[in-house]
Design a protein around this nucleic acid. Structure first.
Lengths: 110, 110
DNA sequence: ATCGACCATCGACGATAATCGATTATGGGA
DNA sequence: TCCCATAATCGATTATCGTCGATGGTCGAT
């Protein structure tokens, strides 16, 4: 018998929300990507892609790929500046992380 | 020239730590795994593997796999009870999440 | 002792993702 | 206009991961 499935006291996390959170966490689930994010976050200024490449120590195309992934989830903001691309972090995005954890743990403030 | 690499004002996140955090986030980077975690967290009691299977709606071996991954990162605790396995959550693990975010963003309290 | 319930493990498959090198596109300076 | 620097894109390769079905092992009940 499955008591929990029949008597869900707390509303279960909708599978759609779970996938949404998952893709969000997946963005942080790679060491290189965390190094990229940390480099930009620690710089206190906009960084170019080339600077990030030198900081992280992987190929330029790899950094470009990771920046695109981070930008798609709004962890960073990218703005073209002539031939360069200036990268800045979106601090709000990471600060929303505890809220996600709370929902997963069922600490909904309903 | 690479100013940031030569003048790292803030200490960069060590690559080893980045990988450590990454494997931590990777644990939460799958929708099914979040559903498993949410099911156990919302239950207010220990759950058996079979109950989780019924809640989440994937195969038994898949749930067993995800539970092992979650247990390796200490998100859940598993204890054999006869032929069953009782699963409980480790709330502390998810509450440490904001700290990880802070370090990635360079908000080290040195 | 046998049977059934429960769960872990194994092997396989498909999908996804990380990385690299090469190429291409674009803007700025000579 | 021509060249260089910068970065995005492409193609290929490799590794990792999620899922399933089947198998095996263990405990409890009959």
């Amino acid at each position: 018998m499955n008591i929990a499935a029949q008597n869900p006291i707390r509303p279960a996390l909708p599978p759609g929300d779970a996938d949404e959170y998952a893709s969000w966490f997946r963005c942080l689930a790679d060491g290189t990507r965390l190094l990229v994010l940390n480099a930009v976050a620690s710089a206190d200024r906009a960084m170019t892609v080339g600077e990030i490449v030198d900081c992280v120590g992987v190929g330029q195309s790899t950094v470009s790929h990771h920046l695109r992934v981070l930008a798609e989830e709004c962890f960073v903001h990218m703005q073209a500046d002539g031939t360069r691309t200036l990268v800045t972090v979106n601090a709000d995005c990471l600060q929303a992380l505890p809220e996600a954890a709370a929902r997963i743990m069922g600490f909904d403030r309903s």
